[in-house]
Design a binder for these strands. Structure first.
Length: 518
DNA sequence: GCGCCTTTGAAGTTT
DNA sequence: AAACTTCAAAGGCGC
């Protein structure tokens, strides 16, 4: 299990996975990061290459093409880390953000929040604070409720981001930015707002890449007003939201609420989960627009699903209504989800594959092939994500979303024959879900273990000592075993289903990690 | 139009 | 405590 909470209670900035890794004698983080990144690229590349033996030639060019790109990003990342470190120091000084010191998260420098509503946009370096930003997956109750739960918003309002993702410049965190926000006026960020992030390619200072900003959560109104849209380049054309913000509804309140209810609470030095200020609009606490907030319209179980709204107080209100009004607060994304968001576009671009199921298989493999450091990065992000989420929604519980999906049936025991008889869920056990021809590698068994993770990665992971270079050199196309053999992310890594499946991993046909293109 | 598919991980519930 | 279940994202596909 992931050490979510570093040390009892203080998971804020606690040493978590990352540190553990180091303890294991990992190489210098930096180095490993580079190496792993390279390896990742290699894998990606190789996977692509494998995908069609035909295109083998492209790999080289591709590789040379890419590597240079990544490094700068890594550097960037390192820089960010430094900023985070500073942020952490500040926070520990009494800053509210003590907790969510997103070590792995890009921080956005904004005026000291304890002094939230800066009248003007001037940010004094001395008073500035790093604020992580997350752009909301906001879907507010109301109009959104009319839509499909899964895609509560029209395409243009969708919070899906891939659309704007730049395949060629994918920062490790890029995909995290799923939200766009019209509230941000694209523009040149004040220099003080952009932590000297240089464009990897040009070397020219650039606006922090969205990925460099904590993407999910809303920023204070004040800050919002002052901070140029970090996602400028990827901000959807005017009027496009990532979230379905009801026309008259939250549009305006959104930013304000976001800050008032959420950020301010976070900002408050006396932050207390239960002190979250209620929005002036009388919205329920959970109604606070947030990236994670989605239309409550989410398929709610017609009945019987009146799970405790008590969680959020106002028990007096009729359960039904209450439910209806309550926005759907999504679960914070876990490490893998974050990774998926980031990499999906890339994979799609590379593989010309669109089916998520297939893509996810690939992503799953790649995930396993990631070095610990890289994974740690995501675990860290996820951890921060959860922290922030919990701060924003103190009363929220994953349970709140239970039953809202209306379905969730699959999941039958892989091996219980009898069950299969009556189980409604027809999960394809051993058949890799690769649409039609698109078989990439042959994932074999189902229950997650069908994919053979590259023997190498696991080895690399297992033995940090093993030169990553070697690994990268091998550039084994992800073979399929989902579970990197005994690559226990053991203690320091969040337990992953990737326990060991050593046996399975044995066979690893160096094959395509990408499903065959059509 | 809705649910499934697929992946991993977190957190909930059940045993 | 372990096992099991649900949900988070994504988008094509089938009914």
């Amino acid at each position: 299990m992931p050490q979510l909470n570093g040390g009892g209670g203080d998971d804020l900035g606690a040493n978590d996975e990352l540190i553990s890794f180091k303890d294991e004698g990992e190489q210098e983080e930096k180095i490993s990061a580079n190496v792993s990144s390279e390896r990742d690229l290699d894998e990606v590349k190789s996977s692509l290459v494998n995908e069609s033996e035909n295109n083998s030639s492209s790999s080289d060019s591709e590789q040379t093409d890419r590597r240079p790109r990544l490094r700068p990003e890594l550097e960037s990342y390192e820089k960010q880390r430094e900023y985070f470190a500073e942020a952490l120091r500040r926070q520990q000084d009494g800053g509210f953000f003590k907790g969510p010191t997103y070590a792995g998260y890009p921080f956005l420098m904004i005026p000291d929040i304890t002094n939230p509503y800066l009248s003007n946009g001037s940010l004094s370096p001395s008073t500035r604070t790093y604020l992580q930003m997350k752009w909301p997956l906001l879907e507010v109750p109301g109009t959104a409720a009319l839509k499909d739960s899964r895609s509560p918003t029209p395409g243009h309002l969708s919070n899906k981001v891939p659309v704007v993702q730049h395949p060629h410049h994918v920062h490790p965190l890029t995909p995290l930015i799923t939200y766009s926000n019209e509230h941000f006026s694209p523009g040149t960020p004040p220099s003080h707002l952009s932590p000297e992030i240089l464009d990897p390619k040009t070397g020219i200072p650039r606006t922090p890449h969205p990925s460099e900003l904590s993407p999910y959560y809303p920023l204070s109104p004040g800050a919002v007003g002052q901070i140029p849209h970090p996602l400028g380049w990827l901000v959807p054309q005017q009027g496009q939201h990532m979230y379905s913000i009801p026309p008259g509804g939250f549009r305006h309140p959104y930013p304000a609420l976001a800050m008032n209810a959420s950020m301010s609470s976070l900002v408050s030095s006396r932050f207390s989960p239960h002190m979250v200020p209620h929005p002036p609009h009388g919205l329920h606490q959970t109604s606070i627009p947030h990236p994670a907030i989605v239309s409550h319209a989410i398929k709610q179980e017609p009945s019987g699903d009146n799970f405790g709204n008590s969680t959020h107080g106002s028990p007096s209100v009729p359960v039904k209504k209450e439910e209806e009004k309550r926005p759907h607060i999504k679960k914070p994304l876990n490490a893998f989800m974050l990774y998926m968001k980031e990499m999906r576009a890339k994979v799609v671009a590379e593989c010309t594959l669109k089916e998520s199921a297939a893509i996810n298989q690939i992503l799953g493999r790649r995930w396993h092939s990631l070095s610990r450091e890289e994974q740690a990065k995501y675990y860290e992000l996820a951890r921060k994500e959860r922290q922030l989420h919990s701060q924003l929604y103190p009363g929220w519980s994953a349970r709140d979303n239970y039953g809202k999906r209306k379905k969730r049936k699959r999941d039958n025991k892989p091996d219980s024959p009898q069950e299969s008889n009556f189980s409604p869920q027809l999960k394809k056990q051993c058949v890799p879900y690769l649409p039609s021809e698109k078989m990439c590698d042959s994932p074999t068994s189902s229950h997650g273990s069908m994919l053979d993770s590259p023997a190498t990665p696991s080895a690399a992971l297992a033995s940090p000592a093993a030169p990553a270079a070697t690994h990268s050199e091998q550039a084994q196309p992800l073979s399929l075993t989902t579970k990197p053999e005994g690559m226990e992310k053991s203690s320091d890594m969040p337990s992953s289903s990737s326990e060991n499946e050593e046996s399975a991993s044995t066979f690893a046909p160096p094959s395509n990690s990408c499903p065959r293109q059509l």
